[in-house]
Computed example of a mutant assay.
Amino acid sequence: MKAVQLNAQWDPKPDFKLGSKDIDKKLTYLGSKVWRHPKVEVVEKGKPEIGPEDVLVEVQACGICGSDVHMAQADKDGYIWYPGLTAFPAVLGHEFSGKVVKAGKKALNKRTNKPYEIGEPVCAEEMFWCGTCRPCCDGYPNHCEALQEIGFSIDGAYTKYVRVPAKYCWSLETLRKLYGDEKLFLAGSLVEPTSVAYNAVIERAGGIRPGDNVLILGGGPIGLAACAVLRRAGASHVIISEPSASRAELARKLGATETVDPTKEDMPGKVLEITGGMGAELILEATGLPTVVWPDVERVIWEGRTLNATVAIVARADAKIPLTGEVFQVRRANIVGSQGHSGHGTFPRVISAMAAGMDMTPMITKKISLDEVAENLKMLQTDRKECKITVTKFD
């Protein structure tokens, strides 16, 4: 079967030190400091074999994530942009849905608490946590000490069939009534990125009270998903700062009440005007450009009348944040980091919200085949007209 695989050279930067969980010449938690000269190619792979607790999923839809783009993107010295957990070569693709075509005898479906039946529509968590280390037992599987990530450190879903341990799978059957057979899988492929947004704004940032104001920086899929989640949670103003007109328009469709173009408008001033001088209780940093956006974040907090604002950082970036401690001390503001999407019932809650009408499928603006993945990964490095490009043809 065809698969889209990324390879790169292990060539650590001088300041890189092998961490306790890194594997020399194979796996690192600091990808942008190690992997050089990424190359994406279509290769032939054998159909995966499954164990008693696994399911074999025939992939029906798999979205391109910004992480995929940044793993395939090199800086001026040839190092990949993506700063996180990586082990190459690996088949890319982690935002996927499909149907179970084979199931191990101990592969239980959480929807029924019975063994999986053939044909069940599913999506899967991207983070494969062990369940026995201290972070997992403390309820923080996103920070598992034995973490593996599908499409990053183990083979992912830019291919026809993928093996997934059943404990990471979630049924999509409840989506069938609203979305129909075909759209069900498109919606299912958006559960993972929407869960990343949900984890950031609800779990890590602590959520909001109905009537609160929120500010989202960046109209990529995570920022757009946050618009939908926060509007559904009862935010009064859902303001998104995004220079792309097409993405700003999409944000409005998904729940944003106001949009600001930070390249043409005074973004903090506009936010204060919209909110009557209050600012925002929750700010989501989803741009990955901290040196660019952080001064504006601090202005919203400093000049706004809202105390106890929380800034949730969800975008991955190497650059350091230019932080002014005085702003956060005086305004009693908080910063939280957010990684991943697992735990605390995030996936089933997102699926439930989708089944109740939170339709994320407008994010999908282009459908492609496996053979078109490489060219679209390159295109997305410089062209942001498309929002979510999704693979729907796998032969």
Rank of each mutant, 00 (worst) to 15 (best):
K2N: 14
Q9R: 15
S20K: 14
K21S: 14
I23F: 00
I23D: 03
K25G: 12
L27M: 12
K33W: 07
K33R: 14
W35V: 00
W35S: 00
H37G: 10
H37T: 13
V42I: 15
K45W: 02
K45Y: 02
K47C: 08
K47V: 13
P52R: 02
L56A: 07
V57T: 08
E58Q: 14
E58F: 08
Q60Y: 04
V69C: 00
H70M: 01
M71Q: 08
D75N: 13
Y79Q: 06
F96W: 02
S97D: 05
S97Y: 01
R111N: 13
T112N: 10
P115A: 11
G119W: 02
E120M: 12
C123R: 04
C123W: 00
C123I: 12
W129Y: 15
W129S: 15
C130E: 08
G131N: 04
T132D: 12
C133H: 07
R134E: 14
Y140M: 11
C144P: 02
L147N: 12
I150E: 12
I150Q: 15
I150S: 13
I150H: 12
I154W: 00
G156E: 03
A157Q: 04
T159R: 15
K160F: 06
V164I: 15
P165D: 03
A166F: 09
K167D: 11
E173D: 12
L175W: 01
K183Y: 05
L184P: 01
A187H: 02
A187E: 01
A187S: 08
G188N: 08
T194C: 13
S195E: 11
V196W: 00
A197H: 01
Y198E: 06
R204A: 07
A205L: 05
G207V: 08
G218Y: 02
G220T: 04
G220E: 04
A226G: 04
R231D: 09
R232G: 06
A233W: 02
S236K: 15
H237E: 15
V238A: 08
E242C: 02
A245Q: 14
R247M: 10
L254V: 05
A256L: 05
V260Y: 11
T263N: 12
K264E: 14
D266T: 06
M267W: 15
K270T: 15
E273S: 13
T275W: 01
T275Y: 03
G276T: 09
L282M: 09
I283C: 07
L284S: 09
E285H: 03
A286V: 10
L289E: 14
T291D: 11
V293Y: 00
P295G: 10
P295A: 08
P295Y: 01
W302Y: 14
G304S: 07
G304E: 06
N308Y: 15
A309W: 03
T310C: 13
V311E: 08
V314S: 09
D318C: 00
D318Y: 00
D318S: 11
A319T: 12
K320G: 09
K320C: 09
I321M: 06
P322C: 06
L323A: 11
V327R: 06
A333H: 05
N334W: 03
V336H: 00
V350T: 10
V350L: 10
I351E: 13
M354K: 05
P362F: 07
I364W: 01
I364S: 03
T365I: 09
I368Y: 01
I368H: 01
S369Q: 04
V373T: 06
D383R: 10
E386N: 12
E386H: 04
